[in-house]
């Protein structure tokens, strides 16, 4: 494989690992992503996607684990309202992260950087 192809492959693998970490392989996906990041060089497309994946998952950790955790801390386990906030918030935000990572993955297949709009 040429180095270009290798970069594209790493880019899409990074995007896939980011998605896996958010879904069926939490933590394992992230560790693999960190290893992959080390192989990349700055200013390349694979570095871009590896970094994006790491950032996405760090933000997800904050938004899902920290925020949910503090909801429990503030509200306590035995309050109906805590559960109302936790469940609705967690499900919705988690789903949004998964959708974002999915879009990122399909962008990485095109070999271009992330773009959220449909305009060319």
């Amino acid at each position: 494989m040429t180095s270009d192809k290798l970069q594209l492959k790493r880019a899409s693998t990074s995007a896939l690992l980011s998605l896996l970490n958010l879904t069926i392989l939490p933590i394992i996906g992230f560790i693999a992503l960190l290893f992959l990041y080390q192989k990349t060089e700055s200013n390349s497309i694979d570095r871009y996607y590896a970094a994006l994946g790491i950032k996405t998952n760090l933000w997800a950790a904050v938004a899902l684990i920290l925020v949910t955790g503090s909801m429990f801390l503030v509200g306590g386990y035995n309050s109906a309202w805590t559960w109302v906030y936790v469940v609705s918030y967690f499900v919705m935000v988690h789903a949004l992260f998964i959708l974002f990572a999915t879009w990122t993955l399909t962008r990485s297949w095109t070999g271009q950087k992330l773009k959220l709009s449909l305009a060319k």
Binding site: A80, W83, Y85, V87, S88
Partner: peptide, 18 residues
């Protein structure tokens, strides 16, 4: 959907979980 989810969690808690 979010409102009904919230209502549902409340309902589960008050009616079945507490």
């Amino acid at each position: 959907t979010l409102i009904l989810t919230a209502a549902g969690v409340m309902q589960v808690f008050l009616q079945r979980f507490s």
